[in-house]
């Protein structure tokens, strides 16, 4: 990644690319949307049947699978929308308070 957009809000008007075209792909990784989360999905491996439905529906693409098995949620980008919990046919996700979750981690 060559294009550092961390200070884009401070750029001089001449620094921006012509035509608002973002020519450096993948820079959305630099925007960690996980900080927006107020509810956190907690996955229950016991209930999960590895059906991939959460993988398909997650709008941020933060759910990963490995060898056809659920491998985790990327909390750096998960916005806590709860779609995974809503769509899961076996109720394997529980949405818990983010503040509560963070205090437990400390």
């Amino acid at each position: 990644m060559s294009w550092d957009i961390s200070k884009i809000d401070e750029w001089h008007w001449k620094e921006h690319p012509t035509g608002i075209a973002i020519k450096d792909p993948g820079n959305s990784r630099q925007v960690k949307t996980g900080g927006w989360r107020s509810l956190r999905p907690i996955h229950d491996k016991e209930k999960c049947n590895n059906c991939f439905i959460c993988f398909v529906f997650c709008p941020e693409g933060c759910i990963s699978f490995s060898n056809d098995e659920f491998a985790g949620v990327d909390y750096d980008y998960c916005k806590g929308c709860g779609i995974c919990a809503k769509e899961c046919p076996v109720d394997a996700f529980e949405m818990i308070s983010e503040i509560e979750a963070q205090s437990k981690e400390k």
């Binding site: 884009i8 809000d9 750029w11 001089h12 008007w13 001449k14 921006h16 012509t18 608002i20």
Partner: peptide
């Protein structure tokens, strides 16, 4: 940074 684009 809309303003900056308009200046461009």
């Amino acid at each position: 940074y809309y303003f900056e684009f308009k200046r461009q």
